[in-house]
C-alpha cells in the first residue's frame, strides 16, 4: 500500500477515534470551548478526510494498474507489451513516451475544458456496466467518439519529429489537416491495440 494511502487511512481512523470520544461523552460540547472542539471534530475533520479521500481515489483511478484491474481490459494491457515498434500503444508504453504507470489515462484523457470530469463520468459508467450490466467482449469495445488528434497533439505539437517528419511535410496540406483534426493521426498510425491478433504476437519482456 502506498505511504500516502497509509497516511490518509491513519488520519481517517484518528478522526473516527476522536468522534467516538465525543459520541461517548457528548457533555464535552456543553461548554463554549467544547462546542468549538466539537465543530473541529464533527465538521472540519470529516470534510477534510472526505476531500483528501476523493482526491486520492481520483488520482488512483488514473493509474494503469487501476484500468487493467477490470478483467475486460486484460487484453488491452497485454497489447502494451507487444514487441513491435509499429504497434502504437506498445511503442509509447515501452519507450516511456507516456508515463508507464499512467499509460491508459495519458492517451485516453480528454485534453479539453472539463475533459477530466467528462472522462471520470465515463469511467464511472464503465464501473457501473462492469458490476451491474453486461460488459462487452474485449474485441467489441469501442470508443465513445473517434480518437481526437488533440490527445496526440497535447504532447507531439511542436516536437521536431512531428513538425519536420518526412511523411508529415511531404504534402503541405498534411500538417494543417492533422492540427485541425480533419485528418486523423490513426489514418496512418493505424495499428492500435490489435487485440484480435494477440495470440500470434511476440511480447517484450521487461528486464528487472
Amino acid at each position: 500500500m502506498p505511504y500516502a494511502t497509509i497516511l490518509i487511512v491513519s488520519l481517517v481512523l484518528f478522526s473516527a477515534a476522536l468522534i467516538t470520544v465525543l459520541v461517548a461523552r457528548p457533555g464535552i460540547a456543553s461548554t463554549r470551548g467544547g462546542k468549538i472542539l466539537a465543530f473541529m471534530i464533527l465538521f472540519f475533520l470529516p470534510v477534510l478526510c472526505g476531500a483528501i479521500g476523493v482526491s486520492s481515489e481520483m488520482e488512483r483511478s488514473t493509474t494503469t494498474a487501476f484500468c487493467l484491474s477490470c478483467h475486460t481490459m486484460e487484453a488491452y494491457g497485454k497489447s502494451l507489451r507487444i514487441d513491435d515498434p509499429g504497434h502504437l500503444p506498445a511503442a509509447h508504453f515501452q519507450n516511456h513516451r507516456v508515463p508507464p504507470d499512467k499509460a491508459c489515462y495519458t492517451c485516453h484523457e480528454d485534453y479539453a475544458m472539463f475533459g477530466t470530469m467528462k472522462v471520470k463520468l465515463q469511467g464511472l459508467h464503465h464501473v457501473w456496466v462492469y458490476y451491474f450490466g453486461t460488459p462487452p467482449a474485449p474485441g467489441e469495445i469501442k470508443l465513445y467518439q473517434p480518437f481526437n488528434n488533440r490527445e496526440c497533439l497535447h504532447c507531439h505539437l511542436g516536437a521536431r519529429s512531428f513538425e519536420e517528419g518526412a511523411m508529415h511535410t511531404a504534402d503541405p496540406e498534411t500538417l494543417p489537416a492533422i492540427k485541425a483534426n480533419t485528418l486523423s493521426c490513426m489514418s496512418c498510425h493505424d495499428t492500435v491495440h490489435d487485440i484480435a491478433h494477440l495470440k500470434d504476437a511476440k511480447f517484450w519482456k521487461e528486464k528487472q
Partner: peptide
C-alpha cells in the same frame, strides 16, 4: 469514515 477507510485500503474500481 470507516467506509472511507475500508474503500481506501481495498483499492478496487468499485471501492470508489
Amino acid at each position: 469514515l470507516v467506509v472511507e477507510a475500508l474503500c481506501l485500503i481495498w483499492g478496487q474500481p468499485i471501492s470508489f
